[in-house]
Design a protein around this nucleic acid. Structure first.
Lengths: 363, 363
DNA sequence: TTGTATGCGTTATCAA
DNA sequence: TTGATAACGCATACAA
């Protein structure tokens, strides 16, 4: 008999019941618009709703979750939020979740495996209804996420994919993107092109390069191995910039002429531009540069960067759609298959590329 | 009698009790290391712990929350995560929360008041134990957060502050920062300095300007009103860049000579650099530029930006400390006072500033 | 059309 | 040193 003993500010369903003169069950039915609400007299509904409003009743989510097993929350795990790639993705996810009135539990693994595991535990403890993982590193193995499918928690990844069919994914078509970038340079008349490839540990690296090679082959463009460098593996999201800078310096020292440079991603390209500019090579007058991703900086850089755009925000959106599909299927006890999305990249032409100088040997 | 009816994968405390041969109560005491655990026989403890491990028992957070009224989660509301200012702050918060094993519920108001309110409701529904609000806009009024103190939910703001003593805050000392920036330019010998002030709606604008004025006065530096512009109010986080760009163009058109320019923040400064460069004015050779904030881009820009650094990550940390203080006080039923922190800014000298040219009239 | 009773998984208060 | 038992606030099957 602790009730009414003082100033507990939380107003419960029983309070509403008492105040309205009906039973908690009826209140519950009315306030949730449960199927049975069809049979409740309008007058009753009104009295209950009024009482609820007057008392400022707010359902206790914890109790509801306990009963319904639904937390109305989704875990979102980033491998490194400092990577500018992540921000638009975060935004896309946030927005889609907001539309569904789901709350986002944010986690950042800082590229550390143990941190990833710890967060995974925390998210499971908090009974997230689904999980989204944003990363492009390869080291997440499927075992880490095994618990999820065992518990029927839908999961989707953005920026990489896992073997098997238990985890959904949203990726850009890297091969098409690589092709797009090279095609652009080729159309502009560039023939001597330098490449800074992505690190081996990144899942994007290989297909982008494949796209480049295929296109080169298809138009008879020769790729000079002396103009191709590959970034080393690294977990620092800024290493792309550093790498682009250092490798471009090295490229310059080789004294092999090139009129265009393709960076693995925007950060690499930005680093390259920095090195070129410092060496007195003007971009795009003397050398065109193209990146990949279209991170927010790219539009702001000087010169603004021509790049292959990943629809990052849209990808965040899609990931939410995928998991929500699963969540809803779970609620309705339907079967379903997790889906994989491949998004189309898009060339964004800005100021860092232009036609190869007509003067000089351009092939 | 639904138990054992099949493949419910969740193992509950009762399962552990049954398996170990003790009662749920004892299991609870042991597994939580509750005070009473001191009296439990070591052998008992061991058997219970073993059983728990063997079954893979994980406490159900929902049930625990319902009972204990503690959700182990904190709401973090950003006004606009697209503002680069926010990322290091987010990281600081995330890291501190992680140390405390608290989970972060992420919300982004997109600079919309109704979205802010809706998120606030959602966060309260999810029974966050505390709230952190990151913003620098002025339009948050105290009433929005009134519910919080009523419910004894500690709250802290980063980047702005509210009147009264119910909400904590972490801010940089804007006045000192303004002084620092101008002092730097003055020491470098600059006398003709242009200023792009912040919009009125931003709380930072006034004190920064005050710091500038005070320093100017103290060293007898004259501020030419024809070289002072003020950004218009806007909610677009990129408007600083645009504004810096446009206003610098305007400044240039006025044909009033200046050897240095101070931007309200880094984005403004970056926009200014873009305009200067485009007009053929080299930075820093012909004109020094200094920003404010030290957002991640600033180090990467070309030229890299001299700026007044806000310790953003540390500020995120501090905010967590502040609210945790409150949370702990609540648990222990102590009284406490919410605190306000003023952080020291720090001058970061990079490539966008240098000594005023000795040639020409420098005063 | 509405009320009663029960259980979700924990924890806390007693009693043994 | 351990075990019953009663909440926490809500939602549902079932009874009325």
């Amino acid at each position: 008999m602790k009730r009414g003993s003082g100033k507990d500010l939380t107003v419960t369903m029983r309070d509403v019941a008492k105040s309205s003169g009906f039973s908690p069950a009826t209140v519950s039915i009315v306030l949730n618009n449960a199927p049975l609400a069809r049979y409740i007299a309008p007058a009753t509904k009104k009295r209950i709703e009024d009482a609820a409003k007057k008392l400022g009743y707010r359902p206790n989510a914890m109790a509801r979750f306990l009963r319904s097993k639904r937390s109305h929350s989704v875990g979102v795990m980033f491998f490194d939020i400092a990577d500018p790639f992540c921000i638009p993705v975060l935004r896309g996810i946030e927005n889609a979740l907001y539309q569904s009135s789901y709350v986002q539990i944010f986690a950042d693994a800082h590229n550390q495996r143990n941190r990833f595991e710890r967060y995974l535990e925390m998210l499971l403890d908090h009974h997230v209804e689904a999980l989204i993982v944003v990363a492009n590193w390869l080291f997440v193995d499927i075992h880490l996420l095994a618990d999820l499918s065992k518990r029927n928690i839908p999961a989707a990844t953005i920026g990489f994919e896992l073997p098997g069919d238990t985890v959904g994914s949203v990726m850009v078509d890297n091969e098409a993107g690589g092709r797009l970038a090279l095609e652009h340079l080729h159309h502009l008349g560039h023939r001597k092109i330098a490449f800074i490839r992505g690190p081996k540990m990144l899942i994007d690296s290989a297909p982008r390069w494949r796209g480049i090679q295929k296109y080169a082959h298809s138009v008879g463009l020769e790729i000079d191995p002396a103009l191709v460098l590959q970034l080393p593996d690294s977990f620092d999201p800024n290493s792309g910039f550093e790498g682009g800078y250092r490798f471009t310096e090295e490229l310059l020292q080789r004294r092999k002429r090139f009129t265009a440079l393709m960076g693995f991603d925007d950060m690499t390209a930005l680093g390259a531009i920095r090195a070129l500019t410092k060496a007195g090579v003007k971009v795009p007058e003397h050398c065109s540069v193209v990146g990949f991703d279209d991170v927010p900086l790219s539009a702001l850089a000087a010169p603004s960067l021509t790049t292959v755009r990943q629809p990052l925000e849209e990808m965040g959106n899609q990931a939410v759609n995928i998991i929500m599909e699963g969540v809803n299927a779970g609620v309705e006890k339907r079967d379903w298959r997790i889906s994989r999305q491949k998004m189309n990249p898009e060339l964004v032409i800005r100021d860092s590329t232009r036609a190869a100088a007509l003067t000089g040997s351009d092939d």
